[in-house]
């Protein structure tokens, strides 16, 4: 490294903030790229759902009415949303905090809401990529979603992303990165098996499971896309309440630094 000399005026002050749309856009783009570049995150958000989608469709050991993909696809979409908006989000936030990025960004001209907003947009971008990839594969497997259920499905996807995203921020912003990693993966596993994603809950459990964000999202998407129309108020209300409560708590507890 040779020692450079700097021409006079090189660092002449000219401060000021860029346009907010540009700041938000660049930040969302950067965070999306980071999420898609991270091997473990891609494994969790894309590869596992793809393998489960194809595997459960081809392997006949779980009794599902034919065409099997009509039952499996909506549940895999719910899994994908939980994986990216909750688990990945929580883990990346935990480690981002450890590496001081929130503090670093907060020390620039970026407004606080844009730091949060950039993360949200990036989470939504990843969800859209997941849904496109998984839907194309499901359609190739013969999936025929009910067109009349699409508006409800879009609303459920947005609310599900918001609910799981808020829960992810709540967890990722609260404790040490290693604990976030362990808890986020554990919750993912428990909700997948017992939270109404892999299979719909029966009897007594349904009362609990359908009030979980996982159960509400999976059941709601299943009803909307398999039967068509609106799945009733319950899944929508459940997801909205989770999003509001978790978001409200997270804004109080999340440590930026």
């Amino acid at each position: 490294m040779s020692e450079p000399t700097f021409a006079a005026g090189t660092f002449r002050p000219d401060p000021g903030r860029a346009g907010l749309a540009r700041i938000l856009g660049v930040q969302a783009l950067t965070e999306t790229r980071l999420a898609l570049r991270n091997g473990e995150q891609v494994l969790l958000t894309l590869l596992i759902p793809i393998v489960l989608l194809i595997g459960l469709d081809l392997a006949g050991f779980i009794p599902v009415p034919a065409p099997r993909v009509d039952t499996i696809a909506p549940r895999i979409l719910a899994l994908a949303i939980m994986s990216s908006a909750f688990t990945s989000q929580a883990i990346s936030l935990g480690f981002d905090r450890r590496y001081g990025v929130l503090r670093r960004l907060a020390a620039t001209a970026v407004p606080r809401w844009s730091i949060v907003g950039g993360r949200m947009l990036a989470a939504l971008a990843v969800v859209i990529i997941q849904l496109v990839v998984l839907s194309v594969i499901a359609l190739l497997l013969g999936w025929s979603p009910a067109a009349s259920g699409l508006p409800a499905a879009v609303l459920l996807v947005l609310l599900g992303t918001a609910a799981f995203g808020a829960l992810g921020v709540l967890l990722g912003g609260a404790v040490r990165a290693e604990i976030v990693l362990a808890v986020a993966n554990l919750v993912w596993f428990v909700l997948l098996l017992a939270g109404g994603i892999a299979v719909g809950a029966r009897d007594g459990f349904a009362a609990i499971v359908n009030f979980l964000p996982s159960g509400a999202l999976a059941e709601g998407l299943h009803t909307a896309l398999a039967s068509g129309g609106w799945p009733g108020w319950q899944p929508i209300a459940v997801l909205a309440v989770w999003a509001l409560v978790a978001g409200g708590v997270a804004t109080r507890t999340t440590r930026f630094v």
């Binding site: 480690f95 450890r98 590496y99 001081g100 670093r104």
Partner: peptide, 11 residues
Amino acid sequence: MPQGGGAYPGV
């Protein structure tokens, strides 16, 4: 320039 810097780990 905060002490210890700060950035996304993978950036």
